Simulated assay, not measured.
Amino acid sequence: MPEGHSVHRITRQFARNFVGKPVTVSSPQGRFAQGAAQISGHIMTDAKSVGKQMFLEFDNGLWLRVHLGMYGAWDFAGDIIMDATIASANGRMGQTNQRGTILDVVPADATADAAGDGEGDERIFDRAGENSMHSIGAPRRTRVRMAEQEKETGAFDTFPPEPVGQVRVRLLTDAVSADLRGPTACEVLRPDEVDAVIAKLGPDPLLDGSQEAEDRFVGVVRRKPTPIGLLLMDQAVVAGIGNVYRAELLFRARIDPHAPGKSLSDEVVRHLWRDWGHLLRIGVETGQMMTMDDLDHDDYVRAMANRADRHWVYKREGLPCRVCGTHITLEEMGARKLYWCPYCQK
Rank of each mutant, 00 (worst) to 15 (best):
V23H: 06
I124H: 04
D174H: 10
N306K: 01
V269H: 01
T291L: 10
E119G: 08
R274F: 02
H327V: 10
C321H: 06
D126P: 05
P107Q: 13
D234N: 15
P139S: 06
L250H: 05
D266P: 00
W74H: 07
P107H: 12
G209S: 09
D275H: 11
D109T: 08
P163D: 09
W276T: 05
L280D: 00
L330G: 09
R12G: 12
R310Y: 04
E317L: 01
G100S: 09
D113S: 15
R92N: 15
I124N: 01
V323R: 04
V164M: 13
D79F: 07
L230K: 13
W340A: 05
D309N: 14
E332M: 09
D126G: 12
T153K: 10
T184Y: 12
D256R: 12
A247L: 10
R16N: 13
E285K: 07
R274P: 02
Y300S: 08
R127H: 13
Q345C: 04
A138H: 15
R307S: 15
Q13F: 02
D298S: 13
D309I: 03
S132F: 05
V169F: 08
D117A: 09
D208G: 00
Y71C: 02
Y343L: 10
G129H: 06
D157L: 07
A199Y: 08
L103I: 09
R140E: 14
L171K: 00
I39V: 14
L207W: 00
D46H: 12
C341G: 06
G219E: 01
K200D: 14
A335C: 06
D275V: 08
M70D: 08
Y314H: 15
Q38K: 14
R143E: 11
D79C: 08
D59N: 10
A196I: 07
A89W: 01
V188F: 03
P205H: 11
E3H: 07
K224Q: 14
D157E: 15
I228L: 00
K48Y: 11
P28W: 04
I39M: 11
A84T: 15
E332P: 03
G129S: 09
A87N: 08
Q345G: 02
G261R: 04
P260V: 10
S265R: 11
G30W: 14
I282Y: 03
Q38I: 04
H5V: 01
A185G: 05
S265I: 08
A108I: 12
L279N: 03
V105E: 04
I39C: 07
R254L: 03
Q29S: 15
T326K: 07
Q38F: 05
D195E: 12
F156R: 04
V167M: 03
D59E: 06
A110E: 15
E162S: 13
V167F: 01
D83M: 00
R12N: 14
R12S: 14
R252D: 13
P139E: 03
L280S: 14
L68D: 02
S49N: 09
W63A: 07
M304C: 08
E332D: 11
A114E: 10
D204A: 11
I39Q: 02
I255K: 00
V194S: 09
A335P: 01
V301P: 00
R99P: 00
V169K: 02
T101A: 11
R281D: 12
D113T: 13
Y314I: 14
E214S: 06
G129N: 08
G182T: 07
D195H: 06
F251P: 04
